[in-house]
């Protein structure tokens, strides 16, 4: 371990605010991105399920995809 104590580690020489300003923003971004994506996915699934339920009630036949060539 390079550091002797916690306060040295947090101070980062005299560059603490710059180093931690980078770390915090980057960590936040890499936590928020998957969190927002998960929430977006959940909303989409709810919306699709609602839609399918409504279609089933209407008695519409599901349009089958022919598994067309990519």
């Amino acid at each position: 371990m390079y550091w002797n104590n916690l306060s040295d580690f947090l101070a980062m020489g005299s560059h603490g605010p710059y180093v931690w300003g980078c770390f915090v923003v980057m960590a936040a971004a890499m936590i928020l991105e998957p969190a927002l994506l998960r929430r977006s996915r959940k909303r989409l699934l709810e919306r699709l399920r609602r839609q399918y339920r409504a279609e089933a009630l209407d008695g519409k036949a599901a349009r089958e995809s022919s598994g067309e060539c990519p």
Binding site: A11, G13, H15, V19, C22, F23
Partner: peptide, 11 residues
């Protein structure tokens, strides 16, 4: 650059 260079591990 002292300790500030550690931003390199993120940048």
């Amino acid at each position: 650059q002292g300790e500030g260079y550690r931003i390199i591990f993120l940048h």
